[in-house]
């Protein structure tokens, strides 16, 4: 019987970052998103200038994965094509959609930018994480009103059952003008699951 365990988790909300439920980083409540994510990037000693070209959603997903994996190279432990990234969110890419739309709404005088347009797909953040960490495995991006861990757990369990993944990042990364939230977890196989990959564990980590 294969046991799945949640080996790492990260939660970013309200200018606070919790790594494995411990406070990792914090900034004043009135800090804006670019300042907060830039400070977090420096705090995590990230060196990846492309980060600053990403839209806000991709930046949020990217930095969450960065802090979660914290220099750990999963590709040394697993075949790269067996490491998946499965994420959900509610707002898809509404923030960058609005920004892009504003550049084209004057139909007589518009200059669409490919650098903006490419980020109008929510799975781009998964692509950014895969490029950074050299993950060649399963991707999926689900859009749901609110985080539905039940569905994601079923889906990720299915990927392990069908031997399509041996390790998988899952979670929720949402950005809109109303606010933002990231919750990522790493699921791996283990002889003994310290934190079993089930709804109770995920809800507890997400809270």
């Amino acid at each position: 019987m294969m046991n799945l365990t949640v080996s790492q988790s990260i939660k970013i909300e309200n200018k606070k970052v919790f790594l494995n439920r411990q406070l990792y980083f914090e900034m004043p409540q009135d800090t804006d998103f670019p300042t907060f994510t830039k400070a977090l990037y420096k705090h995590a000693e990230t060196k990846y200038p492309k980060f600053f070209k990403m839209d806000k959603l991709a930046r949020l997903g990217f930095i969450a994965a960065e802090v979660l994996l914290n220099g750990q190279s999963l590709t040394e432990e697993y075949p790269s094509d067996k490491i998946g990234v499965i994420l959900s969110n509610s707002s898809s890419t509404i923030d960058i959609d609005t920004e892009y739309y504003n550049t084209i709404k004057d139909k007589d005088n518009y200059f669409p930018s490919p650098a903006l347009f490419v980020y109008t797909l929510p799975n781009i953040m998964i692509g950014e994480i895969c490029i950074r960490h050299k993950f060649n495995g399963e991707n999926n991006l689900f859009v749901e009103k609110e985080f539905n861990p039940d569905f994601q757990i079923k889906y990720i369990n299915g990927l392990f059952d069908q031997q399509r993944v041996q390790a998988c990042l899952g979670g929720w990364v949402d950005y809109s003008t109303k606010g933002y939230e990231a919750f990522l977890f790493l699921v791996e196989m283990a002889d003994e699951a310290k934190i079993p990959f089930n709804i109770e564990s995920i809800l507890k980590l997400y809270k």
Binding site: N139, N140, F142, L159
Partner: peptide
Amino acid sequence: VVISNACISGVLAIVTAAGLIRQ
């Protein structure tokens, strides 16, 4: 279930749905 994965969305939706039925 809404799947939004750029140009592979349709193929991935079929693979995803088939996997859930198989499970």
